[in-house]
């Protein structure tokens, strides 16, 4: 009886030591779920979700603090992907949070006074310029977050929608047109 007890205690101590060791040795840094959520988000860093960037929003979703329908740039497909990832129900966008057409910022260089305020606002450093030098947008890096528009004191930044051209044109989903046929 006593011997059996000692054996059990011995085993539990050994296994406990192994578990304790592996908990330290194979510790996962950060929350892997946050990385996965962040990979789904469109990285516009626009703050429309109410968090200062995509990563903080991903962290909030992972903690269960934020709903998954707060990211208009991700579109409905983004919500579906998040719902799939997290195993929750699809939630439609709330009031006034509809996705917009993609656009890039454009600086009217005639009006720009070179105040650098937009440079400081841009989350992806997509604006080139210096004090009293007019600024310009690197269109290929611009995420269309619109964060540069509010700080501009002379309102010289506008959003220009990205038009469809031969390089980004997509095939339509095949549909069968419904034709009205006269009743016999």
């Amino acid at each position: 009886m006593i011997a059996a007890l000692w054996v059990m205690v011995g085993i539990s101590l050994l296994l406990g030591a192994v578990l304790g060791f592996s908990a330290i040795k194979f510790k996962v840094e950060g929350n892997p779920l946050v990385e996965k959520i962040d990979a789904v988000l469109p990285q516009t860093q626009c703050g429309q979700c109410g968090y200062p960037g995509c990563k903080p929003y991903a962290e909030a979703i992972a903690k269960g603090e934020a709903n998954i329908n707060k990211c208009p740039p991700g579109g409905e497909e983004g919500i579906r992907k998040l719902a799939d990832l997290l195993g929750v129900e699809y939630v439609p966008f709330g009031e006034g949070a509809a996705p917009k057409a993609k656009a890039v910022a454009f600086i009217d260089e005639q009006t720009c006074i070179g105040c650098t305020l937009c440079l400081q606002a841009c989350p992806v450093d997509a604006i080139v310029g210096a004090a009293k030098q007019m600024h310009t947008i690197i269109a290929s890096e611009c995420t269309g977050c619109e964060l540069c528009i509010a700080p501009c004191p002379v309102d010289c930044i506008s959003m220009q929608p990205i038009g469809e051209d031969i390089t980004n044109w997509k095939w339509d989903y095949p549909t069968i047109p419904i034709v009205q046929v006269a009743a016999r």
Binding site: Q43, D125, A126, T143
Partner: peptide
Amino acid sequence: AADLARERHEYR
């Protein structure tokens, strides 16, 4: 584009 934006944002 998202990867590029993420990288630039993190660098910033």
